[in-house]
Design a protein around this nucleic acid. Structure first.
Length: 204
DNA sequence: CCGGTGATGTTC
DNA sequence: AACATCACCGGG
């Protein structure tokens, strides 16, 4: 069964496009103070160093520094002022590439995920309507919220150390589909989005 | 199932 | 000014 935490070699031993595919079927786990939540990764996007849509494309700034820290690093950024997205950094130190996690199939701690997703995290937290299972982690901002992931806590840490990590995939057969990436205006022609075909929890 | 709109604040 | 988004609303 797939209950082993992935070692650094998993992240280091392939290129970014391959890693984006290999992460499908693996389980993202967060052992938080409030409880454990986890979900199977069902959708990813790759961002390469020579790719204009990549945050690290021709720029190395304080924000993107974790992308240059080497494979297995956690890169979390704030988007549209109120949402956060989590990436698995890939490639070697000083080459800025990463895989965005876009959707999870919830596994563990579903009640806790429901509770977290009822709150939108701003200065004054906003309550939203109850969220159905299918929508809990269906999108990069949603899954970060449901999993209790925070940039202040986890950014620039490693997936191989600490309470936020990835477990190896169970040997389940599935087909991988690809498409162009979502929500970008450059690099739209590149088929760098990967997802498990026919999985109900994929976004869009 | 769409499509449109406003919220929100860091980053360059 | 842009931004790797989302919740909510209304229409079909």
């Amino acid at each position: 069964m797939g209950n082993k935490k992935l070692p650094l070699s998993f992240y280091e031993s392939c290129d970014t496009l391959t890693l984006a595919r290999k992460l499908l079927g693996c389980e993202l786990v967060h052992e938080s103070p409030d409880g454990i939540t986890s979900g199977i990764i069902v959708e990813t996007e790759a961002y390469l160093a020579n790719d204009p849509a990549c945050h690290a494309y021709n720029r190395r700034t304080p924000r993107t520094e974790p992308m240059y820290a080497g494979a297995g690093t956690i890169y979390i950024y704030l988007i549209y002022g109120m949402y956060q997205c989590i990436n698995v950094v890939s490639n070697v130190k000083d080459i800025g590439e990463a895989v965005l996690i876009r959707a999870l199939q919830p596994v563990e701690g579903i009640e806790l995920m429901q509770q977290r997703r009822q709150l939108r995290k701003t200065k004054t937290d906003i309550k939203i309507k109850p969220v159905i299972l299918k929508e809990l982690c269906r999108g990069p901002g949603k899954l970060v919220n449901a999993m209790g992931i925070e940039r202040d806590t986890h950014n620039n840490h490693l997936f191989t150390e600490g309470p936020l990590y990835i477990k190896e995939s169970d040997p389940v057969d599935f087909e991988i589909s690809s498409s162009s990436r979502i929500g970008i205006n450059v690099g739209v022609d590149l088929p760098y989005r990967f997802f498990i075909r026919n999985n109900l929890f994929v976004s869009r």
